[in-house]
Design a protein around this nucleic acid. Sequence first.
DNA 1: TGCTTTTCGTTCAAAAGCGATCAAATTCAA
DNA 2: TTGAATTTGATCGCTTTTGAACGAAAAGCA
Lengths: 259, 259
Amino acid sequence: MIQENSPALAPQRREHLRQMLREGGVARVEDLRRKLDVSVATIRRDLEILEEDGKVRRVHGGAVSMESRLEEPVFENKTSLAAKEKQRIAEEAYSLIESDEAIYLNGGSTTLFLARLLRERSDLTVVTNSLQAAIELADSGPRVILIGGELRRISQTMVGPLTSAVLAQVHVDKAFMGTMGFCLKNGLTTTDPNEAYSNEIVAEQAGQVILLADSNKAEKVCFARFSDFDKIDLLITDRNLSAEYTKSLPKIGVKVRTV
Amino acid sequence: MIQENSPALAPQRREHLRQMLREGGVARVEDLRRKLDVSVATIRRDLEILEEDGKVRRVHGGAVSMESRLEEPVFENKTSLAAKEKQRIAEEAYSLIESDEAIYLNGGSTTLFLARLLRERSDLTVVTNSLQAAIELADSGPRVILIGGELRRISQTMVGPLTSAVLAQVHVDKAFMGTMGFCLKNGLTTTDPNEAYSNEIVAEQAGQVILLADSNKAEKVCFARFSDFDKIDLLITDRNLSAEYTKSLPKIGVKVRTV
DNA sequence: TGCTTTTCGTTCAAAAGCGATCAAATTCAA
DNA sequence: TTGAATTTGATCGCTTTTGAACGAAAAGCA
């Protein structure tokens, strides 16, 4: 017997369409037609409806989604650079998190990996100044508190004097901090002074400060310093970190875990 | 074994229908008819009843379950038919913005349309509690200041006591506010008290308060009230707004523009 | 620029779905 | 059993949706 594929309901089909658009960002009419197995006229009509709802913007040859998530052109390459290491570091960090804790994530690609691991943890409270992290967690999972302030475009984080107002009013059990560079002599540094200022406040207040940094960050010194190693409780890094660090850091009270 | 179709009792059949809908999320009338072995008229009547009970939403060709799992793609939320109007309202609002101003946008779809128009305006400062608006403007355009606080999932806005800390420290020339409902008697209302609180603070402090609301919002009253009309300088709406409003609002000092 | 190809919007007709109506079947109570 | 009420199924206009056709507009190319 032939199982006649009853065609999808119109709203269902439009929802499907919308989702395909959102995933790919853009799509051509012809491709959509083939996937949904209807005529181009129908696709066009559907796109028209979706456009009226503001979900989609039509362009010659297809349509682009109006709801695709924030692009990350800058991050893209950065994340792929040491993605393996960062993923492992994030997983190790995740294993430290207990039930019902409040944690802080600052901006950066490493902490973003960690954010992605938190999507199912509805018992947590996540405080962050990272727009990306907030987006990752916007739909489900932990309670999210986003630090306000001026949006710094390059890093897509909130920085500036306004942030400290909120930071002063919250307390987190564990702060997971990424950094642009670290070294024994200069401590932890990043490029932007505002960013550094936010980090500094958090490092002072958090119950524990856990530094997430792959070995590429070692020996790097950037413009703005935000903490010394004595504020750091634990460094999670990869196996390529030189022995110089793995030996001397524990002596000044910083535990080190390599993954 | 032959399943003798002992004609199921009506309530039993409807329960069965409801369950099939819930499992599949959607179903078309013809398929349901075949499975239950009754006429389409009966199916339609059943669906009508289920719809009245809010279990199901009917669409052309079938029905969508309203009680499918939370994770299922929640269908096409109440047809935001007003997208056209919202676009026009946003364009009118845009025309009011002068050079180098600081403006506020609260959450909601209407203000999101406005945010999209601001992407090229690098002379402006945009203060907002809307994650969506921030995302729209994250890559280029105006200086963005995102109000911190707890992320309210449904609306994707920042709300709660922490927001007021930042709000107190900024001043905007024009606040463009969306609302869930407005009426002459109860003023402006929205569903969430926290959301209302943020709106209230802004309405107090802003140089001008400009309400963006299509006519569907008229006569709607929600739980949390955040402003009276006397705080509002201008209402931008569409032509369908009843004369009751367009006549009486100017008398109490609220200019009205219909687009 | 002018030409070709693709895509678009519109129109039209076929098909599918809908609500209303009515009659047959069923149920229930007297 | 009878008669009324309810439920069901069938039919008939009417609306919505769909796909094909065709000229207009846009994009690509020489």
